[in-house]
Design a protein around this nucleic acid. Structure first.
Lengths: 153, 153
DNA sequence: TAGATATTGACAGCATACTGTCAATATGGA
DNA sequence: TCCATATTGACAGTATGCTGTCAATATCTA
């Protein structure tokens, strides 16, 4: 197998493990990675759905749907934005704050265990390298033609 | 931000770009990453849905659903497994082979561009390092307690 | 200031992945 | 051989993500 394929597979594998860890951390609190991301995004203050989506790098409507569920469940409350009649600001309810704290406790426990076995300097260097590769991938993918080749007759 | 968080975010970012590249490669051929994975899994011979799912590391029923769609679209055909009356073997139809070849052309084009800007030895070393980290993450996540802490009263 | 353009949230629909359950069938051990 | 267990595919339901469209509202520009 070529080095690039091996690299890509290692990325997929570790991404899967990180997602799985996110689920394992949040599931006992009755949440999921996706819900955690939204609660966490509101951890430092109110935001609109559109702002949240931009911060998370997700589609606006994906966040909208989940936020509506969290509102219905009482983990979030909403508040009008004084200077924009379209916009609704979301913020953590006391229940939402409690849930986020509980998840944070578990996340801390997990990441301390993981990082105790890794060298922070090496991790930081690795992250920088990965970001360089990400830039190259993004550039070359942009240049991929969007036309389909003619199907073989 | 701590090094571990920075590392995790770089993994999420590059994973997202790789997934996006997969979609960009397969979309003009009328497919998606997920469909490509199934077609590719059958590229070297017939397999059952359950085998495919194990190979891909996905849930059996996820693969089942997509495979049924690909069968309905004529990209796959099925064949009974002679020694097991439960099992249906899937294989690429001629149309499925043509689609897979077309995707492969585009994948080659893309990966050649990307790898032309990267050092294969460095990539291979990186992949090895990532696999080591993956092992640590898997171990420490397994040891995470599954009990929820008591909610604060 | 008026008209063009962008943003926001609501609503609807699709794609992909997961889980649980069931009947049919294989398989392995007593 | 016979029974417990595992595997396989069908069916049903859920979670998360995406896209497209619309009306209301902001914002920018001529």
């Amino acid at each position: 197998m070529d080095a690039w394929t091996k690299f890509a597979e290692s990325i997929f594998a570790i991404n899967g493990l990180l997602m799985q860890a996110g689920e394992s951390i949040s599931r006992p609190i009755g949440q999921s990675s996706a819900r955690w991301q939204i609660l966490g995004g509101l951890g430092y203050g109110p935001k609109s759905v559109a702002q949240l989506a931009r911060d998370m790098g997700h589609a606006r409507q994906s966040v909208q749907r989940l936020a509506n569920v969290l509102l219905k469940e009482g983990l979030l409350t909403y508040r009008d934005k004084p200077d924009d009649r379209r916009t609704v600001l979301l913020e953590l309810s006391p229940a939402g704050q409690a849930v986020l704290s509980a998840i944070y406790q578990r996340q801390l426990q997990w990441s301390e265990r993981v990082t105790s076995q890794l060298d922070p300097d090496q991790l930081a260097a690795l992250a920088t390298t990965l970001q360089d590769i990400a830039r190259i991938v993004a550039e070359q993918t942009d240049e991929l033609p969007t036309e389909a080749p003619k199907p073989a007759p």
